[in-house]
């Protein structure tokens, strides 16, 4: 039995605006095992990012988490930020989707990496500068002295994401959350960045939580995958089984949408609707897919509602 790094139990996130509250994440329970790569899959608005932000404690003020998340056995939901801060960066590294907007426009690359080091270590100026160059080398950047003195606007897209990764791993975290790390990049860069993440994972013994809607990417990189739909986990399984033998109706629909190399279909099928529950709460799936408990149907395979094993939308 693998040890558990993150244990999420009955996590809900309420989006509050103008006194009204809407459940954006509903009753998510999920374990992330130490040293595994787990994919969080689902369409936009399904609650992937909010679940990840909840783990890292980065939810905006109008998003209120309920339930429980333990990290290394320690409860982190409701933990005051002063204590939370000690985990951020040092234990949990976060890679955001758009490095251009997620990195500071005026501070140099070196200064931004150094801020992490200043927050968690008592290095001398010299040690920090050395560590910055070491980190930039680790993420595959050359001419580290130049890069460190550059601002983010002076770098190319791929370099920016490498800098983002350098910041995320700067303090040697045990969990790395990568929120669509390759969505903003073209295909060749996507592969390079994913290769880098996989290499870092191996070298540093990282646990990786990969948020994506790219199923082929999941197949190549992650041992397990969890499918989110309408703020709920609908299916969790080893990646191979999940993609080869999807059980939940939504997962089936999702897998059917992915193109394969020798595809003879003239048109790819689509999943009906675009997160309709975000516009109208009445559109939340009730009898069809929702309102069932997540149950373990075989060792390691979890499914929400046995009767959901039927047809796709």
């Amino acid at each position: 039995m693998p040890s558990t790094l993150v244990h999420i139990e009955h996590l809900s996130v309420d989006a509050v605006s103008d006194g009204e509250s809407f459940p954006a994440v509903r009753d998510v329970s999920l374990d992330i095992h130490t040293s595994e790569a787990l994919a969080l899959v689902g369409e936009s608005g399904s609650g992937k990012t909010l679940t990840a932000l909840s783990i890292a404690g980065l939810l905006a003020e109008n998003l209120r988490p309920r339930g429980s998340i333990t990290f290394h056995g320690r409860e982190v939901v409701g933990l005051p930020w002063t204590e939370r801060r000690a985990l951020a960066g040092s234990e949990i590294g976060y890679i955001f989707q758009e490095p251009m907007s997620a990195l500071h426009p005026i501070l140099t690359v070196g200064e931004q990496i150094e801020e992490s080091l200043k927050a968690h270590f008592t290095f001398t100026r010299r040690e920090r500068a050395d560590r910055v160059r070491e980190l930039l080398t680790t993420v595959g950047l050359a001419k580290t002295r130049d890069v460190a003195s550059n601002r983010i606007g002076q770098l190319s897209g791929g370099m920016r994401q490498r800098v983002m990764i350098a910041i995320a791993i700067s303090c040697g975290p045990s969990l790395l959350i990568a929120d669509e790390p390759t969505t903003a990049l073209d295909v060749t860069l996507q592969k390079q960045i994913m290769d880098l993440l996989m290499k870092l994972r191996e070298d540093m013994g990282l646990t990786l939580l990969l948020i994506t809607h790219n199923l082929p990417l999941v197949a190549q990189t992650c041992e397990r995958a969890a499918v989110l739909y309408a703020g709920q986990v609908v299916e969790v399984a080893p990646t191979r089984e999940l993609l080869g033998d999807p059980r939940h109706g939504y997962t089936k629909a999702l897998v059917a949408c992915s193109p394969v190399l020798d595809d003879t279909r003239r048109r790819l099928p689509t999943v009906a609707g675009t997160a309709p529950w975000l516009v109208d709460e009445r559109a939340l799936p009730k009898s069809q897919w929702g309102h069932h408990d997540l149950i373990e149907i075989e060792p390691g395979r979890w499914l929400r509602g046995r009767d959901n094993m039927g047809g796709a939308a």
Partner: peptide, 12 residues
């Protein structure tokens, strides 16, 4: 977003 990034780094 870069303020969120700064928080994710654990900066005070």
């Amino acid at each position: 977003p870069y303020v969120t990034t700064a928080r994710s780094q654990g900066i005070k």
